[in-house]
Design a binder for these strands. Sequence first.
DNA 1: ATGTAC
Length: 480
Amino acid sequence: MTVKLQQIDDCRWRIPREGAMRTEGLVFADARMIATLQEEQALEQVRNVATLPGIVGPSLAMPDIHWGYGFPIGGVAAFDAEEGVVSPGGVGYDINCGVRLLRSALTANDIKPVLAKLADTLFRNVPAGVGSERRDLKVSLAEQRRVLERGAAWAVARGYGETEDLRHIEAGGMLPDADSELISERAMERGRAQLGTLGSGNHFLEVQEVEEIFDAAVADVLGLCTGQVTVSIHTGSRGLGYQVCDDFLKRMLQASRKYGIELPDRQLCCAPLTSPEGREYLAAMAGAANFAFANRQIITAWVRESFEQVLGLGPAQLRLSLIYDVCHNIAKWETHTVDGRARRLCVHRKGATRAFPPGHPETPEAYRAVGQPVLIPGDMGRYSYVLVGSAGAMAETFGSTCHGAGRVLSRHAAKKVAHGRRIEAELAERGILIRAAGRAAVAEEISEAYKDVAEVVDVVRRAGLGKIVARLRPLAVIKG
DNA sequence: ATGTAC
């Protein structure tokens, strides 16, 4: 089935309203990206989302859009508090998957002599891989409930990191209104031993070098300069978030029937935001989101510890400070101005990053003048980007941008391309060390499996959704 | 993404 597309300009495409659509679709992409998309069902998914009750503004898609469960990955949709719905498919299985970025007082030359030892130590100290389990962290069931309610603040209280870190996390590292009683026993069990683990797939831990600065004034405010060592952590809520999504998909399928919501695709199952089912999903989702915030906070402490071990330097010399931590799979209550009126909306971001502009009260004070940091990982063989949010994003996308490069090859296809090659050696030739839980994980994540993230962020820049600040090159990659 | 199917 082909989806009608009208080109608006060189980076915007409209899917006109027709049939059951309640609003139009708006896709941010260049002509080449659109050409590859039309063979996929991702645009059809943008159109399907536009049929959901209470949607406000267009059904949006970022330039890294690809096919996902119900909603496309790279999709943004906002819903009215009274008329709208909440959908687990609009958040995704990995609730509060996100990225955090640490800066350091080190240069790439400082760590090059010990890079292999640093990679080994990080790989040992941060469990990675499918089903990876905790190191030495023991959490009782009662305490796990506190994790789900307090997020990163729980981790800091337990000695993982500093209070200062909390100021540099989206939502302060804790979504309010989380209710651990709404999370199934099974989800609790799955999460129990997974706090402080990386997981698999595109999740990673990277030691990086700032390769290029594009905006010196903003980079200065974020504390970034060329040649500096940074660390990125990309992971989410592991098996716990997966189980919460799975549990609620079943309930939402029933709820959709109960409330008479017509679905073009069962995977879009949802419930009114005013219904018990809707409220309960949001409270369970907030718990899983807080688990993910705590997860990234604990890993951060182990990263700091690893650097201290290998370099023999103290925290004051390393200065591994948290620049920012952003979610890219979440539904949140936010206030947005629509047609000149401030409205409280439930914004679904699935594979999309919040990108609030300069001056926004939710942006940490330190960055208030330049905008919220936006962290966009690329693939392990190339680079990642740091952006800041802009007024354009607030006006057009409910303060959102892309979240990454976006796959172009399926995992299976990537493995075929990698077959017979020595990917580790190829990366080493480019100065990138990799430590991974398995060979298959590396093969599935080869550069060729992804779009060039430089092209993705360039669409974001041209569309005025964000400002490009810096490009980071991987030096050592820890993969599940 | 995911104890890659209970």
